[in-house]
């Protein structure tokens, strides 16, 4: 029994800092890529793995549609996409926290029964508070979420927090840590079924090499 295709496995990577960390890990696993600034795809020198470089937010879409069979992505974006993937490996790098934050001088005693929260992560925010019976009004933003409490759009934000320096710079504080966010190697379920032996080998290789 063999996998149906011998074409390179396809892996979507998010452009940016995370891509560099994944590429470095893949290099230690024996995959060598030549990527120039304008290239959006690249295949390793032995033709085993084809990279597709996409915007972070778009990555789950490409994997869900099977355009890329595999992807490296934060659990925040996977959740937000609503897609269900096989999670094959958790990387040691890129960990962060999803937090509820407010102005440093915000007094929660003045909160109404319904919290107003500005966020990029509207699905997560809605589901998190809904599951706990807390009514929320979610205002969806696409960036610079920290501005919302400062300018009075919403008293709360839900956003990723690494060091907290951006929050402090805007006179905000973490009110509650909502979830740990990890970077995962995800796979389209149908793609996995077709290529399961080669994917299992790739995962073993990735797991077998230290990330430090």
């Amino acid at each position: 029994m063999s996998d149906l295709s011998s074409a390179p496995l396809t892996l979507a990577l998010p452009k940016g800092r995370l891509m560099q960390q994944v590429l470095e890990h893949l290099r230690r696993c024996g995959f060598q890529f030549q990527i120039s600034q304008r290239n959006l795809t690249a295949t390793d020198e032995e033709g085993r793995l084809k990279l597709i470089l996409v915007k972070n937010n778009d990555l789950p879409v490409y994997v869900a549609h099977g355009i890329a069979g595999l992807g490296v992505c934060g659990t925040d974006l996977v959740y937000e996409s609503g897609a269900e993937f096989f999670e094959l490996h958790t990387f040691g790098f890129g960990r962060t926290r999803m937090c509820l934050a407010s102005r440093a001088d915000h007094d929660p005693a003045g909160d109404h029964t319904q919290l107003t929260i500005a966020t990029k992560f509207s699905r997560f925010t809605h589901d998190f508070f809904h599951a706990r019976g807390i009514p929320v009004q979610v205002i969806r933003l696409n960036g610079s979420v920290e501005l919302a409490p400062v300018l009075g759009l919403a008293p709360y934000i839900v956003d990723l927090v690494e060091t907290g320096s951006t929050l402090r710079a805007n006179n905000l504080k973490v009110t509650q840590e909502l979830a740990e966010i990890e970077v995962k190697l995800v796979c389209n379920p149908a793609y996995y079924k077709l290529q399961f032996r080669r994917i299992a080998e790739l995962v073993e290789t990735i797991k077998g090499v230290s990330e430090t």
């Binding site: 149906l4 295709s5 869900a64 549609h65 099977g66 355009i67 389209n188 379920p189 149908a190 793609y191 079924k193 077709l194």
Partner: peptide, 11 residues
């Protein structure tokens, strides 16, 4: 059972 086909991202 599910049936899968090359190039299609779902059963």
């Amino acid at each position: 059972f599910n049936v899968y086909m090359e190039g299609i991202g779902a059963a």
